[in-house]
Nucleic acid binder design. Structure first.
Length: 817
RNA sequence: GCCGAUGUGGUGAAACUGGUAAACACGCACGACUCAAAAUCGUGUGCCUUAUGGGUUUGUGGGUUCGAGUCCCACCAUCGGCACCA
């Protein structure tokens, strides 16, 4: 490496200066326009920063520095998402207390982040595992409890045997634990939930108003999973009992030839007496329970089930008795946990009916198919599945008879008849489930609840917060929360009646801590309240939020939910926390695969900073490609950026005699570059902003250029957000005492970004044949003459007739012959 | 199965509302400097070709247009989200 540019010396020097005289502090209530630019705060793992982290962090840093130079009051904070399973597992593995290892990890992360020169407002640093922070996480829990948005319920939940804790649906990927990759099983446990489903409709509806990527919006929409349909009541024969089902196709009610209950359905226990094959049924229920999520939801597997003999249900339209089955292809957690099966028009019901020889009745006919064949086949033709058509075979169903009605109309009509007869109603269903927030692990915020034999569930009074995490327990997971083992913690007096009571021993999912952290940055030291509402009003919502796509359906839904819940509790006056989100792409290894210890292809950011410098690292990651794309690391390409910075360094350090007057051509290019870099930063297109600067520098360094001091200063300013250390150094070299980040962003002269001469392309039949230089704004007549003089063109026109002459001003001519 | 994104040189990629495809960078080749190497600088570099020219090229096949990487239709491939959700 060349000796001109000593990045270690320069970067160390400026980092120290910035530490002593912070330039980045956000000012509450400043009259300047505010911008809140946020990174997804890191989870301080034991491995330290990954090269992926600086990608998003550099993007927001460039943007923040740019905004400050444009006079904005910018809140650009950082903190630590410090609670949670990985941190605890790491501590167990290292045989230290998580408090200790987390503290150490944070120190390492902080040092690494500082080594990259990010302009965070360090006075606002937060740590979710700090009692000053989790006090308010607990307070938040109490507010939700007050509003009935936090509740305890026994429910089948996801259980990871290896982590020995329950998991939220969002933490189960393909039936496996997100963290340890072990199979997740279902367990019936009493657990705490947040009622996110209460906001399902609003969460869905407001997505379209947000400036997010289509992929992100789509992921959330799918997760919320809205579908419209009807709830329909089926009477059990000779009984007052009702089986309620949800269906999106009430128009197929005539074709419901049997019913299916999920194995966990309550009614089965209630009808136990009437079921004649109880031992068989009980055996099936047991089998279903022992299956893990994977086995149960595997689409490839054959469907199984057992009939509930001795009982029947009545189809409310046909009035016919139909059998009731039990099968694990019906999920207990969606709809009512029971379905009306329409085997002629639903693939799953078809497969099941086929196996157990159940009746199929065709009730929707699609004119695209041959009627006889269709009916003979029992409705199911692969192409015809779930298609719309018209009602058939509804005659004899009394009020319900509606043969020939198109699907859409029939759906409405069936619902209206059902409503009239009080047999059903229109219903909207969501796939999203309530958020399971309790964890049987040590390293989290204790749930602020006390159980009293006399008073029942008693929330901890707000004045008693925080409920401190005890440090006198063996925190190893056993399946029961380790907090139970701390007597001091567990045994308390009831805040209501004073008698002996016990504390809730579960801790909160770490995603609760991260669902509100962006609010705390506005008022991080407040010990009286979660935040000052005026400060929130000033700073929120977040103007730009950058982070990984992996948080699409977890964190980003939770944060939106908490925002809405706090709004309804009167603490916030806005509904959406993040107006604009960009997801940085994954930086792949040089071999094109994901970086992984297993493949031994991980790039260590410390080494890159050591070897090339923070400025090179930052700029290289921005130069690799569009922010949101996945891009492979290339240790050769990074040299291109290093060379570029060397070039700038040399240009300014060894520039001998600045010219007193600016050359016009140079001024034009410089102004165009200002325009381009400015526009690109606004759109977060940093890769092309860098190319534009490279072109400028290539021109500046080409032989015999006359440059003014002002021109060099402008270049350094443009570079400043990208390579802050080098820019600060060069700024000083150019004779300035004050930091470059106190300077204002360069403006371009609109007159100078338009060239006087333009290149007009001449095509013959759409093919490029020549180009000519003309003055801007040349008319068609004049141009025609010029074109006719071109030898190249004459050649192509020889003996041919020009049919059409197309002229796009200042751009192109196309001769059609 | 449903939904979304992407597809351009040897590589990372660029191309404004349809108007010179491949900017910028890496790599490579050749040259300069050097005893030599590294670094640096200069020149060239999509592919084919009978080469001061011509042909051809943005996943595939069609279409619209004077003109398509860009718009429309169909298809293929890769990646991602959801999924026995009734």
């Amino acid at each position: 490496m060349t000796t001109y540019y000593n990045h270690k010396k320069i970067e160390g020097k400026w980092q120290q200066k910035w530490e002593q005289q912070p330039l980045n502090q956000a000012v509450d209530f400043s009259k300047n326009f505010k911008k809140y630019v946020l990174d997804m705060f890191p989870y301080p793992s034991g491995e330290g920063l990954h090269v992926g982290h600086p990608e998003g962090y550099t993007a927001t840093d460039i943007y923040s520095r740019y905004l400050r130079m444009n006079g904005f009051n910018v809140l650009h904070p950082i903190g630590w998402d410090a609670f949670g399973l990985p941190a605890e597992n790491y501590a167990i593995q290292q045989k230290v207390h998580p408090q200790k290892s987390t503290k150490k990890n944070i120190e390492y992360f902080r040092q690494q982040i500082k080594s990259l020169g990010f302009s965070y407002d360090w006075s606002r640093e937060i740590n979710t595992s700090d009692p000053d922070y989790y006090c308010w996480t607990q307070w938040l829990f109490l507010q939700l409890y007050k509003k009935d948005l936090a509740y305890k319920k026994k429910a089948p939940v996801n259980w990871c045997k290896d982590c020995k804790t329950v998991l939220a649906n969002e933490q189960v990927i393909d039936g496996k634990c997100e963290r340890c990759n072990h199979q997740v099983i279902q367990k019936d446990l009493e657990q705490w939930f947040f009622k996110i489903t209460a906001y399902a409709e609003e969460l869905l509806k407001e997505i379209d108003k947000l400036d997010w990527s289509q992929a992100l919006k789509n992921a959330q929409k799918n997760w919320i999973g809205r579908s419209e349909g009807a709830l329909i009541k089926f009477q059990v024969s000779n009984s007052k009992r009702i089986i309620e089902v949800f269906t999106t196709r009430p128009d197929t009610l005539f074709g419901a030839t049997y019913m299916v209950l999920a194995p966990e359905h309550q009614l089965i226990q209630e009808l136990k007496e009437k079921i004649t094959n109880w031992p068989e049924v009980e055996k099936y229920i047991k089998q279903a329970r022992n299956k893990n999520q994977m086995e149960r939801t595997d689409l490839a597997k054959e469907k199984t089930g057992v009939e509930l003999k001795g009982i029947k249900a009545i189809n409310p339209a046909t009035k016919k008795e139909i059998p009731i089955w039990l099968a694990d292809y019906v999920l207990t957690s969606y709809g009512t946990g029971a379905i009306m099966a329409v085997p002629a028009h639903d693939q799953r019901d078809w497969e099941f009916a086929d196996k157990y020889h159940l009746n199929k009745k065709v009730v929707v006919y699609n004119p695209n198919y041959i009627k006889d064949e269709y009916i003979e086949n029992g409705g199911f033709l692969p192409q015809a599945m779930e298609e719309e058509g018209e009602v058939i075979n509804s005659n004899g169903c009394g009020d319900f008879a509606m043969d020939g009605w198109p699907t859409e109309k029939a759906i409405k009509e069936v619902i209206s008849i059902l409503e009239r007869k009080k047999l059903g109603k229109a219903q909207t269903q969501y796939k999203i489930r309530d958020w399971l927030v309790s964890r049987q692990r040590y390293w989290g915020a204790p749930i602020p609840i006390i159980y009293c034999d006399k008073c029942g569930v008693v929330p901890v009074p707000e004045k008693d917060l925080p409920v401190l995490l005890p440090d006198d327990v063996d925190f190893k997971p056993t399946g029961e929360s380790p907090l139970v083992r701390s007597k001091k913690f567990h045994q308390v007096k009831c805040p209501k009646c004073g008698s002996a009571a016990r504390r809730e021993s579960d801790t909160m999912d770490t995603f609760v801590c991260s669902a509100w952290y962006f609010l705390r940055f506005c008022d991080p030291q407040n010990s009286k309240e979660i935040f000052n509402q005026k400060k929130i009003k000033y700073w929120l919502p977040v103007n730009l939020y950058v982070g990984g796509m992996e948080h699409a359906v977890g964190h980003l839904i939770y944060a939106r939910f908490i925002t809405k819940a706090l709004r309804d509790a009167g603490f916030l006056n806005f509904s959406e926390p993040f107006l604009k989100i960009r997801n940085q792409g994954i930086i792949l290894a040089e071999d094109g695969r994901k970086m992984s210890k297993r493949w031994k292809n991980v790039i260590n950011p410390d080494k890159v900073v050591e070897e090339y410098g923070a400025d090179t690292m930052r700029m290289y990651e921005m130069f690799m490609g569009p922010l949101e794309d996945h891009k492979p690391w290339d240790s050769k390409n990074i040299m291109g950026i290093r060379r570029f910075l060397e070039k700038v360094y040399k240009l300014i350090n060894f520039f001998k005699s600045p010219s007193s007057s600016a050359d016009e051509k140079t001024e034009r290019l410089l102004n165009k570059t200002i325009k381009k870099v400015t526009a690109d930063i606004e759109e977060l297109k940093f890769n092309t902003a860098i190319s534009a600067m490279m072109e400028l520098v290539n021109y500046f360094t080409s032989p015999q250029q006359k440059l003014t001091a002002k021109q060099l200063e402008t270049l350094v300013k443009l570079l400043a957000p990208f390579a802050p250390h080098l820019a600060e150094e060069l700024w000083q070299k150019l004779g300035h005492k004050r930091s470059i980040f106190k300077e204002s962003w360069p403006k371009f002269d609109p007159k100078l970004v338009i060239d006087e001469k333009v290149t007009v392309v001449i095509q013959v039949n759409g093919k490029l044949r020549a180009t000519i230089q003309v003055k801007r704004g040349v008319g068609e007549k004049e141009l025609k003459e010029l074109v006719n003089k071109q030898a190249q063109i004459k050649k192509h026109l020889k003996g041919k007739e020009i049919k059409k002459f197309i002229y796009i001003k200042d751009k192109l001519v196309n001769l059609v012959i």
